[in-house]
Computed example of a mutant assay.
Amino acid sequence: PTRGRLRENLFNLLVYLQTHPVRLAKNAVSSTDRQALVACLLPPVLPALSPEAELDFLLHLGRRTELLTVAHGRLRPNRNPVRGWLQAGTAAQMWMLQNAWRADPTWNDLWHVPELQPQNTGWENSPLRARAAILDFLERLNAPPNSWLAIDGFLNTIKQANPDFQRPNGDYQSWYIKNAAGEMLMGFEHWDAVEGGLIRYLIGVILPLLDVVELGKSDSGAVPDLFQITAAGQQFLARTPPDAAESQSAVRLRVDDKFQVRVPAQASLYDRFQLARFAEFDQRTDRQAVYRITRASLNRALKNGVTAEQILAFLTRVTNNQIPLRVVERLRAWGGRFSSAKIEQATLLRLKNQQMVDELQRHPAVGPLLGEVVGPTTIILPAKTAHRVRQLLREMGYLE
């Protein structure tokens, strides 16, 4: 159930951050914005991963890969890296994310294990050292394709072969780590809780998200206790990049006369990202995502500088020119009416004669502040300049 989850959720965050302002305070997202971002994610499927923890990993990975950036205090997609990632094939997209995590010293896996509470007392661990050791053990398993392995068996293999895989000099006394009950976990007797907890976190959370392993159950209803290495995982562990010639075949979108746009699951993320600029997400199934073009979603795109003709050109391309005539006509009509009228507050300046109108229009201080002349002796004063014009007219003797 986790295959493709990371890619889909990261895409959802990119879309939301493209269309909604999310500002950072002290490099952190507000609780209100966090709730909105969590709502963008697919329903949770991993027992050991809360939606909030998944969001933290996604935001960290997004910034680490430079898909997300901070500009003027706002968290938003980084245009060129995002375009390149969206246009890449699925395997290349995942390869980028997998290797960003593999080489990232700033995401400390041990400090994200849900059952552990590391204490910041000055001791340090190396996430790269532990990560590399566990991945090396996985690669050396040489498991046949589609074979299921016991998670407990994998833990025992590491415990017997290299129990100190993350502890320089086998030091089990200087790391201050508590369990959820607040009990200190110092000494080798707590290996299963600390080292075992880290291994379970990688096997049960991080690696399934990265499509390196899949989880399974030996008993119906039990928590996952089995795993198998995916084909993509075998490539990742062997450091074999995907075929550079991989390309996404053209997958057509379908638009109906109710303004629904159906996007097959195999469609390009780049096309979906462009669609999301002027359409609202409606629903998702395993086979497709459904968007709906509404007046509000179209106005949002028009306000951001996208034209109705650009939208129609995009839909023509992704549907192979299969757009209902009703949709074409309505989009053009909506686009033509956008911003063709506006309502604003203003003040009317009435003068005694045309000569006074001409004098004020020529005045170097007053003239630039005046609005449109709407009658022989009437001028509109914009709301933002009315107060200043009133002051000047008093100084010039036009007003009492």
Rank of each mutant, 00 (worst) to 15 (best):
L155K: 14
I158M: 05
N156W: 12
V194K: 08
H190R: 14
E183N: 13
G204T: 07
F154K: 12
V194T: 12
P168R: 14
Y176K: 08
L155H: 09
E183L: 13
L198F: 11
G187E: 01
K159I: 02
N162S: 14
N156T: 13
I151R: 09
R200F: 11
Y172R: 04
Q160S: 08
R200L: 06
M184F: 09
F188V: 13
G153Q: 01
W175M: 14
V205E: 00
H190G: 06
I199T: 08
F165L: 00
T157C: 06
A180C: 04
A193W: 01
A181H: 13
D164T: 09
Y176A: 06
F165S: 00
R200C: 09
D192T: 14
N146H: 12
L198K: 04
F165Y: 15
Y172C: 04
L202G: 03
L185A: 11
G182S: 10
L198E: 01
N146A: 13
L149I: 15
P145Q: 10
G187Q: 02
Q160T: 10
D192L: 14
G182Q: 07
T157Q: 13
D192V: 12
P163Y: 09
G170H: 10
H190T: 10
G197P: 11
W175L: 15
D192Q: 15
S174Q: 10
A193D: 12
G153K: 05
S147T: 15
P163C: 04
E195H: 15
N169C: 07
K178F: 08
L155I: 06
F154T: 07
Q166N: 05
I177Q: 00
Q166P: 00
G182A: 11
P163L: 07
T157Y: 04
Y201V: 03
R167P: 01
G170A: 11
G197S: 08
I151W: 07
V194L: 03
G182I: 08
L149S: 06
I203Y: 04
P163D: 02
A180N: 12
Y201R: 11
V205S: 11
E189V: 14
A193I: 09
G204D: 05
D164L: 03
L149Y: 05
A161F: 05
S174W: 07
E195V: 12
P163I: 04
W148K: 06
R167E: 02
L155C: 08
L185C: 11
L149H: 12
W148T: 03
G196M: 02
I177D: 00
K178P: 00
N146G: 02
Y172Q: 03
L202R: 15
F154I: 07
R167M: 03
S147M: 07
